[in-house]
């Protein structure tokens, strides 16, 4: 940047000690968690950033083996969306409360927002982008279109990944069972009954999905 460093744009000459000397006069409680401040005071960040910023990660995503280097704090969801441009997996809450980020890891449905990418070294991840075989849609994708199992489409990837797993797990025995075992996937548009219809149909087809 050509402009003069102004307030708010970092200058390398700033001393961390300035920060350490600050005794924050806060009315109310500090927004910054104490532990995070402690971390900054101890200069963990800088030390760690230098020493161990990224670690190697070998992971198979949609059948493609990837050798990556990632920070341990990167969630599987953020790795997919922000580093691999696999944006089909959605972020709806980031706290494991909505299911939009559902992917399969080693064949099991999990929430990619609540797991660190580095925890999946050597594992196989399938996202919505990896469900169809080329141009041929997965039967669940077909059924979602046919039964209009979505509106805005934002929860859809998670619903579909979860729905496939729901059948594979043997939890699609009845509409009631489907509703219970799909309850980890929120849909604010409220397409739930259509999603259930789609799952029932795919289950009835009896195909090996």
């Amino acid at each position: 940047m050509s402009q003069k460093p102004s307030k708010g744009i970092p200058s390398p000459r700033d001393s961390r000690r300035d920060f350490l000397k600050q005794s924050a006069v806060l009315t109310g409680i500090a927004l910054t968690p104490k532990a995070a401040i402690t971390a900054a005071e101890n200069q963990w960040d800088e030390k760690l950033a230098d020493a161990i910023e990224k670690i190697p990660l070998n992971i198979e995503i949609n059948g493609i083996q990837k050798s990556l280097s990632v920070e341990p704090r990167v969630t599987l969801l953020d790795l997919l969306r922000e580093q691999l441009n696999l944006t089909g997996t959605k972020k709806g809450c980031d706290y494991g409360q909505c299911g939009a980020c559902t992917v399969h890891v080693n064949g099991k449905r999990v929430l990619s927002c609540l797991t660190l990418a580095v925890m999946h070294d050597g594992e196989k991840v399938t996202t919505i982008e990896g469900l169809a075989k080329g141009d041929e849609l997965h039967p669940m994708q077909e059924a979602f279109i046919k039964h209009d199992g979505f509106q805005c489409g934002y929860c859809t990837s998670g619903q579909i990944m979860s729905a496939v797993a729901c059948i594979r797990e043997g939890h699609a025995g009845s509409e009631t069972e489907i509703r219970e075992f799909m309850s980890g996937n929120l849909c604010r548009c409220g397409a739930y009954p259509n999603i259930v219809d789609a799952i029932v149909e795919v289950k009835k087809q009896g195909k090996n999905i």
């Binding site: 089909g88 982008e129 979602f144 279109i145």
Partner: peptide, 9 residues
Amino acid sequence: DGRMKVTGK
């Protein structure tokens, strides 16, 4: 746009 939505595209 169903296909776009069910494939994550």
